[in-house]
Write a protein that binds this DNA or RNA. Structure first.
Lengths: 154, 154
DNA sequence: TATTGTTATACTCTATAACTATA
DNA sequence: TATAGTTATAGAGTATAACAATA
């Protein structure tokens, strides 16, 4: 097995490269671990999470918050609805929109999945102390919050 | 425009969510900025970078270092070869493999692109001080280096 | 005139199986 | 028997245009 050391130093100095690799590791792990809940992956979970914490949220708001295009959310919401994890109700003021709500089953799955997601987060970052993890989150958040494209997500 | 504040706090506490969003911002920015060099995106650049710093590297080594499957690298390498940025040469010891080398043009493009990539990195993280950026890179790197799946990449 | 949710569709990215030539 | 590079292809993710209903 060829094991010559490569020089990757001029990639590892970039936040983009390092963030992408961390994202890759976490997302792959989550896809595996969320499977037991019938969730396809991190996006399914994020949708459940946001609806759970924001009862009556609309599809459009989910799209803004998760940086995905409306047509791509349709199938995700339909899948969760088919599995009886969420339901659509009439929006109180806007008849175009629909409020999204978790079902009882949806709340249960969300709570269980949240445990696993939290576990994975600690597990994947096991090389870091708790305070390092918090610091890391603070630094990362500073970056995407300051992004000029992020002004619409409410 | 509906601008009610959403509760996203229980997503923002996760490294996966924050790393994904930062990755999203940086990658999108890079796609735009690398276009002027005829590079399709960050992967094209990473390939140029690694070949530039590791003359004679093989496709297989690139795949390990960048976490991509061999079939998906074929088109990328061919594209860069067609644009006269790299060339394949006979491997010194293994007749199955091919060593990859930058052309003179490849070196020039790599150097110019590296400037832009470095600029984007600072630009995107403008909310952070230089020492915060270094710390962020250190913390992120600690995570993906400790990933059990990362043992093969040389 | 603009926005919500939707369909249809194209495009890209990612992943698997299988082949050849070498080791 | 295993590996490097490749082809073909399947599958998942991402993006755009256009429409009906409503604001």
């Amino acid at each position: 097995m060829k094991m010559e050391t490569l020089d990757t130093s001029s990639l590892e100095m970039f936040i983009g490269y390092n963030a992408k690799r961390v994202s890759f590791v976490v997302m792959n792990t989550l896809v595996n671990r969320l499977h037991e809940f019938g969730l396809q992956g991190p996006i399914d979970y994020s949708v459940l999470n946001l609806i759970g914490h924001n009862a009556g949220i609309t599809s459009r708001q989910l799209c803004s918050a998760l940086c995905i295009y409306p047509p791509n959310l349709v199938g995700i919401v339909r899948g969760l609805e088919d599995r009886n994890l969420l339901e659509k109700r009439q929006h109180p003021t806007d008849r175009r929109a629909q409020g999204l709500y978790l079902t009882q089953l949806g709340f249960a799955v969300q709570a269980d999945a949240e445990q696993v997601v939290a576990e994975v987060d600690v597990e994947v970052a096991s090389a870091l102390t708790a305070s390092e993890r918090h610091l890391l989150n603070k630094l990362l958040r500073k970056i995407w919050v300051s992004d000029p494209h992020f002004q619409k997500a409410g």
